[in-house]
């Protein structure tokens, strides 16, 4: 379904600010899978998600999605296959437009937009039903600007918008990280519901070990731009938060060792 083959990306190549967030990442995910991507700051996990979404061109490697080679597709073209929820609740919705208008935009994701009326009665009825399922009382406020809602409400709506037209792939980029714990729990509950009901193929980036242990059917742990560990099937089901923490600690220690060895070498030989 989704195949990522050995992709590389360097930003600001050849300057003092050079960063190499992706150094040969490969993934292969069957249809209906739910992959959780874990990693510390700067491990390249969000960059990987953006590479799949098409935010920037790759230096090397290929991405295949739902039978298409999308490597050279621009972001807006890939949107036909991909639904996205961002980390920042402000990113996923147009603040000065109403809930209904935002939804009308999402229902045409990746399709031609013509001169037909955007807010048809059918759309409003469908929207009211879907929003009611969120149990946030938003179904009576469809005419309100989205900017007047809380972060949690906006994230829930973004999730609904990303999935109202069934995407071949759903990308969740730390979509609960900017929320208070209560809203985050609520969003996770809605996320699980939506993914289960529509049998969505999902990639979720998170730095919460708890979420990683509880959600999904496979885990990839990223470190310094490449995949450090993979867990699938029974391995993943047995995995507890403590196990993940232990692996993290291992990575950290290895990195410190790298640094201290580098320092030692520098001291002795330069």
């Amino acid at each position: 379904m989704l195949t990522v083959q050995n992709i590389y990306k360097t930003f600001n190549a050849g300057t003092a600010n050079e960063v190499r967030p992706l150094r040969g990442v490969s993934l292969d995910i069957p249809e209906g899978a739910f992959l959780v991507i874990l990693g510390g700051n700067g491990s390249g996990k969000s960059t990987l998600l953006n590479a799949i979404a098409g935010t920037f061109p790759l230096d090397n490697g290929e991405i295949h999605l739902a039978g298409h080679n999308v490597t050279r597709w621009q972001e807006h073209r890939r949107a036909r296959l991909i639904g996205r929820v961002f980390q920042n609740p402000f990113t996923g919705t147009a603040p000065n437009m109403s809930i209904a208008e935002n939804f009308a935009l999402a229902i045409r994701r990746g399709q031609a937009r013509g001169l037909g009326w955007a807010l048809t009665k059918n759309l409003m009825d469908e929207l009211r039903d879907r929003v009611k399922e969120l149990r946030m009382g938003l179904e009576d406020r469809l005419g309100n600007a989205i900017g007047s809602l809380s972060g949690g409400q906006r994230q829930a709506l973004t999730l609904l918008m990303a999935t109202c037209l069934k995407p071949a792939l759903l990308l969740l980029d730390e979509h609960t990280a900017a929320l208070d714990p209560k809203s985050a729990d609520q969003i996770i509950r809605v996320t699980e519901e939506v993914i289960k009901r529509h049998k969505l193929t999902t990639l979720m980036v998170t730095h919460s070990m708890q979420q990683a242990a509880n959600l999904g059917d496979r885990i990839v742990m990223m470190h310094r731009g490449s995949v450090a560990y993979r867990f699938e099937g029974a391995d993943k089901q047995r995995l507890r938060v403590e196990d993940l923490l232990a692996r993290f600690e291992e990575l950290r220690r290895r990195e410190m060792l790298d640094d201290s060895v580098a320092a030692l070498l520098q001291e002795n030989y330069i």
């Binding site: 979404a53 972001e75 807006h76 073209r77 949107a79 036909r80 991909i82 996205r84 961002f86 402000f90 990113t91 996923g92 919705t93 147009a94 603040p95 000065n96 437009m97 208008e101 935002n102 935009l105 999402a106 045409r108 994701r109 990746g110 399709q111 918008m161």
Partner: peptide
């Protein structure tokens, strides 16, 4: 209107 209000969001919607 959305391309003026939130370009990143509407790009992700195709």
């Amino acid at each position: 209107r959305a391309s003026g209000d939130n370009p990143q969001m509407i790009r992700a919607l195709g």
